[in-house]
Simulated assay, not measured.
Amino acid sequence: MAEHATIEYATADGNDYPEHERTYAMFTALAKWGTIGVAAILVLMWIFLL
C-alpha cells in the first residue's frame, strides 16, 4: 500500500483583520441599502399598480 503522508495546507502569514472589518462593513452596508431599495420598489409598485 502507499504511504500516507501528512496533509499540507496553504496558510497565510497572520490575519488581515482591518481588511476583514472593511469587507464586513461593506457587506452590511450593501445588505442594508439593498433591503431599503427592495422595500422602496415594493412601495412604488403598491402605489402605482393598485
Rank of each mutant, 00 (worst) to 15 (best):
residue 7 I to S: 01
residue 16 D to F: 08
residue 13 D to F: 09
residue 13 D to H: 10
residue 13 D to P: 04
residue 33 W to Y: 15
residue 49 L to I: 08
residue 33 W to C: 00
residue 48 F to V: 12
residue 48 F to Q: 03
residue 46 W to L: 14
residue 30 L to A: 09
residue 14 G to C: 05
residue 41 I to S: 09
residue 47 I to F: 07
residue 45 M to Y: 11
residue 22 R to W: 04
residue 23 T to M: 03
residue 39 A to S: 14
residue 6 T to D: 12
residue 40 A to N: 04
residue 35 T to C: 05
residue 36 I to A: 12
residue 6 T to Q: 10
residue 19 E to F: 02
residue 31 A to L: 15
residue 8 E to P: 00
residue 21 E to S: 03
residue 32 K to F: 15
residue 29 A to L: 10
residue 10 A to Y: 07
residue 17 Y to F: 12
residue 6 T to E: 13
residue 38 V to H: 01
residue 23 T to G: 02
residue 17 Y to L: 13
residue 23 T to H: 04
residue 13 D to I: 07
residue 20 H to V: 13
residue 4 H to P: 00
residue 14 G to A: 08
residue 24 Y to S: 07
residue 36 I to T: 11
residue 43 V to F: 12
residue 14 G to T: 04
residue 16 D to K: 05
residue 30 L to F: 14
residue 36 I to K: 02
residue 12 A to N: 10
residue 5 A to Q: 09
residue 17 Y to N: 12
residue 19 E to Y: 01
residue 48 F to A: 06
residue 20 H to A: 12
residue 35 T to V: 10
residue 18 P to H: 04
residue 6 T to I: 08
residue 38 V to S: 06
residue 19 E to W: 01
residue 32 K to Q: 06
residue 7 I to P: 00
residue 44 L to W: 10
residue 18 P to I: 01
residue 21 E to Q: 09
residue 39 A to F: 12
residue 43 V to S: 03
residue 45 M to F: 12
residue 16 D to E: 06
residue 39 A to H: 02
residue 45 M to G: 06
residue 10 A to L: 12
residue 38 V to G: 08
residue 49 L to Q: 07
residue 45 M to V: 15
residue 37 G to H: 05
residue 16 D to T: 01
residue 28 T to A: 09
residue 22 R to S: 08
residue 12 A to Y: 09
residue 42 L to Q: 02
residue 30 L to E: 12
residue 39 A to G: 12
residue 24 Y to H: 05
residue 34 G to W: 06
residue 34 G to I: 11
residue 43 V to I: 15
residue 40 A to E: 01
residue 6 T to N: 04
residue 6 T to Y: 04
residue 14 G to S: 06
residue 26 M to T: 13
residue 19 E to T: 08
residue 44 L to M: 11
residue 27 F to C: 05
residue 9 Y to G: 00
residue 37 G to C: 09
residue 44 L to T: 13
residue 32 K to Y: 13
residue 36 I to D: 05
residue 42 L to C: 15
residue 14 G to F: 03
residue 34 G to H: 08
residue 21 E to W: 04
residue 41 I to Q: 01
residue 47 I to C: 01
residue 8 E to V: 13
residue 49 L to A: 08
residue 15 N to H: 08
residue 47 I to A: 06
residue 30 L to T: 10
residue 7 I to Y: 06
residue 18 P to W: 01
